[in-house]
């Protein structure tokens, strides 16, 4: 199953951890719009977590519009959820960054210098009020 066992001692309530896991699964494309989430009871049994906690996580996700709870049928990823397109966008961005770093390294720029250049660039963009990708 794609959902991992939550950490009860982390200080973050379990339902929040589960919500984050579902959102992450949707962002990375492990869960797609329209796909069904695991049912509450079997999931509670598998993760060894209170069923009410799972129910609460699902309710909150529904409230956020991330999933839909259909009477009698179960929980489904909603169509308006952040989609695979966003994941693709991030993956493309990662490729761009990787190749830029590769080129800089070839020119003998150290990692520390690269980091400072990137920070300065971002900060510089902020000061001039330029656009930042979300």
């Amino acid at each position: 199953m794609i959902l991992l066992k939550p950490n009860p001692s982390s200080g973050v309530p379990i339902y929040l951890q589960l919500m984050e896991q579902v959102r992450h699964a949707i962002e990375t494309g492990a869960l797609r719009p329209g796909e069904q989430l695991p049912s509450i009871r079997p999931l509670a049994e598998e993760l060894v977590v209170n069923p009410n906690t799972i129910a609460k996580a699902y309710r909150e996700l529904e409230h956020e519009g991330v999933i839909e709870l259909r009477q009698g049928a179960g929980a489904f990823v909603s169509d308006k959820a952040p989609t695979k397109k966003d994941a693709d966008k991030l993956r493309a961005a990662q490729t761009t960054v990787a190749s830029a770093i590769e080129k800089l390294r070839e020119r003998g720029v150290t990692d520390e210098e690269i980091r400072r250049l990137v920070e300065a660039e971002l900060a510089g963009v902020n000061r001039t009020g330029g656009k930042r990708g979300e």
Partner: peptide, 27 residues
Amino acid sequence: LVTHVSREGSTVFFSSHQLSEVEQIAD
């Protein structure tokens, strides 16, 4: 325990020293 509660709907009242297990399954 979790399986039993989710399928049978019983109430569970348990004492424990293990705080992490309480956090895990108690509401």
